[in-house]
Nucleic acid binder design. Structure first.
Lengths: 157, 157
DNA sequence: TCTTAGTCCGACCTATTTGATCGGAGATCA
DNA sequence: TGATCTCCGATCAAATAGGTCGGACTAAGA
């Protein structure tokens, strides 16, 4: 449960790769094309292409057409958060269906729903976590993220 | 994205309801049956029945057969965590496919996978969050949970 | 003791989502 | 101008989730 999709997985891998090439020591600034990434990580080419297109459309990467074309990060690796990447691919993050209800639409249970508020809290926490982590944090092997979640004992509010 | 299933939603609602009846002021200790919950929250009866059966099988609630039968919490509301409930319904929690790979099986990308480690970290954080929250925290309206996720700046390790 | 209301359990169907594929149009550079 | 890219939409198949059905078993109450 709570799984993220393969597409999102691919997006993360691809961005990590692009970032590491772009800011790496070997060939800094080099443009990376779809095929290279697909072969490196055994990702179906066409699917990866779609993922990269989506990322480009959402301003995560810049695309360059024609031969010797490919992709570059649109911003620095610190300016791209994991939350942004995931939302680019999978749409707005939401634990529950009722997270982003507009206008008149609401779930069948809304009226007597007893879990909406606490779940929205959980959702916020997860969102904050994903927003606090950037592409930069995924470079260089070991990640540095940590979290403290005090049990509900008279905290905040 | 990262949505939890309707079944899990129903499970949370049902447990919250059972807990609030059982420990409430009106009719403490009363047994609650499937129909009552289904009607209260507009949940399809048969589906809810399945959910409750699963919860019973996993030791979250005790079932009582026959007329005047129904369900009771198997433990105190503080002893049941959100993580336990969700896992009862949806199986082990895992952000990525490769979270619980056994033996020889591994994803196509494993070999060069560059995002496994950081994602597992994220997963741990979420799991801790869900484990720190109990059914008790969902009673009484406003939840008290909070979270602190320091950006990756020289933390832990 | 018999009936009835309830749980229990498993098989089943359907709709939605996801993963993956195909084909052509437009851009760029040698 | 042709080869090599990205771009974009349409499409398909498989997996999963949501929801349904029917029957067996159990226990309380008349």
């Amino acid at each position: 449960m709570l799984k993220i999709s393969k597409k999102a997985d691919y997006a993360l891998m691809a961005l990590q790769h692009i970032a590491s090439v772009q800011f790496g020591d070997v060939t800094p600034g080099r443009v990376v094309n779809t095929k290279e990434i697909a072969e490196e990580y055994n990702i179906p080419l066409e699917l990866l292409a779609k993922v990269l297109q989506t990322l480009a459309k959402n301003g995560m990467i810049d695309s360059h057409n024609g031969p010797k074309g490919g992709y570059l990060l649109a911003r620095g690796a610190r300016q791209i958060t994991i939350a942004q990447i995931l939302e680019s691919i999978e749409g707005p993050l939401g634990i529950t269906d009722c997270s982003h209800e507009k206008d008149g639409e609401f779930c069948m249970q809304r009226e007597h729903c007893n879990i909406r508020t606490p779940l929205l809290k959980v959702q916020d926490s997860i969102y904050q976590l994903l927003s606090s982590m950037t592409l930069q944090d995924m470079l260089g092997g070991t990640p540095l993220i940590t979290i403290q979640s005090p049990t509900a004992q008279g905290v905040t509010r």
